[in-house]
Design a protein around this nucleic acid. Sequence first.
DNA 1: GCGTGGTTACAAAAACATGCGTAATTTACT
DNA 2: AGTAAATTACGCATGTTTTTGTAACCACGC
Lengths: 116, 116
Amino acid sequence: MKDLVSACPIEDVMRVLSGRWPTLLLYYLKDGTKRFSDLQRDNPSISHRMLTLELRKLEKAGIARRTMFEGYPLRVEYDLTETGLKLIPLIDALGDWWQTAAPASKKVAARSLEAV
Amino acid sequence: MKDLVSACPIEDVMRVLSGRWPTLLLYYLKDGTKRFSDLQRDNPSISHRMLTLELRKLEKAGIARRTMFEGYPLRVEYDLTETGLKLIPLIDALGDWWQTAAPASKKVAARSLEAV
DNA sequence: GCGTGGTTACAAAAACATGCGTAATTTACT
DNA sequence: AGTAAATTACGCATGTTTTTGTAACCACGC
């Protein structure tokens, strides 16, 4: 039986941020409150199933907040918590690091291809 | 292995850092040069195969450097590149963020995420 | 035959996609 | 007026694909 909360905080962080979607969603949510359908439009390649699952994960981790409005058609809004907002500059720093550091090996080619 | 370059830098970064091992290996490599067997000892729960695969990934991403010495028994050493070293404070910042921001609710979150 | 750093083939698990169903109200069509 | 269809944010069942794990084997020199 594994440890539920690991000794290393980095392990815990990566349990939340790992994968294709979490940081991307952060990236879109930083612009402000978004509805489910907004996020779908922002990132058409995510399936609606993944979108719900990932949003729940972010919510449970205290990064995003989910607000549901009564009535039909359904309306649900998502935005970042204080904690989530603090995460943004850290994610950005990672992006910057990637772009500035060791450009040679990374920019193998200006390839178009599946842009998200 | 998938190509490391896409439209969004964050996507690229996470393609390298996602998963259980990359950041952990970073964490151990930051202490200095390590041999394959050192890393195995540092983190006994990683499988032999995963360790080689992850190390190759870090190498390919320009984060770690692999130095092989001729002769037997084989000797291979790993350490961080300049680029890799620059990544360390960013990873640390993520760890700090996790610990400082709403610590109580997160330990709960980490637990419930496992259940999912 | 042990220890080193690997590889290969195969199995298991996790991540992710696809398509259908649901709700109450509004719009559109006949 | 009456019916059909669209809307929204999901849940569920069932794929497919990707990642990770297991185990065995290789090379070599001592």
